[in-house]
Amino acid sequence: MSVLILAEHDNATLNAATLNAVTAALQIDSSVDILVAGNGCQGAADSAAQVAGIGKVLVADNAAYDHALAEAVAPLVAELAANYSHVIASATTTGKNVLPRVGALLDVQPISDISAVIDASTFKRPVYAGNVIATVKSNDAIKVLTVRGTAFDAAPATGGSAAVEAVGAAHASATSSFVGEEVAKSDRPDLTAAGIVVSGGRGMGNGENFEMLYSIADKLGAAVGASRAAVDAGFVPNDMQVGQTGKIVAPDLYIAVGISGAIQHLAGMKDSKVIAAINKDEEAPIFSVADYGLVADLFQALPEFESGL
């Protein structure tokens, strides 16, 4: 048995979520290789080689793999998968985009978003918006898995010295091409990597009121998130959504402001170490998971909170 991890990276460095996938992979088997497919991705390959526990780094450096188009990367992964028992990626938008395509090419039913490894074929995963945890066993010859980052600790980014090896002919995408991207510009930390997350819900009333959360976040060095209700209402963009269908976060401190606590939202944040909630409705479900609950009008509480920091 051996495991192949599809690394997520920006060509220069490895995405932090890949380190969580490494931990999941090492729970399955001690033989773990990592594939870095990109364009000018030597930097990412070098950082992958330093991750503790990695056997080999496979590098596919070709213009075809720029922007990790699924049509290009999936055939490469499927080809390499012949030498492995498991293929793993992070359950990020990139991993979720590419791995099912790999599964179909291999005629394998992938298992998405695993939150625990029971044995080499058996995994736990949340279903029904996190209302239920299913234990699922794969009977396919190759297991194709995406990993919920918050469920596994990050592997040490240094300490390893894996061999780096070039692989594979290019599989350029004939059916899709990259047009452009708009990367959200923010000086704040990334939502899924932040130590503190401050999130607002429908109770914020409008997008302008999120300024109150931004200034608190800046004092705390925190990221700002939102509930699906706030995204649906158009207060903030979708990439701020925390929840089962948005981002899954587990920071040291999660501050929920004006968020009632729909199960959909709780599924995305209830593994946070400490949860604080501010809501004027004392019956709000968010209080059933909050370590510290404050029943108050957020428009009075937030300025006071900020000045007390």
Binding site: I133, T135, V136, D140, I275, A290
Partner: peptide
Amino acid sequence: PRTEQLSVEPPAERAAGIKV
């Protein structure tokens, strides 16, 4: 099916804390 669902269980409950 290629996978078997062996069991389902409720998620680990998080105990409610205190109101301040």
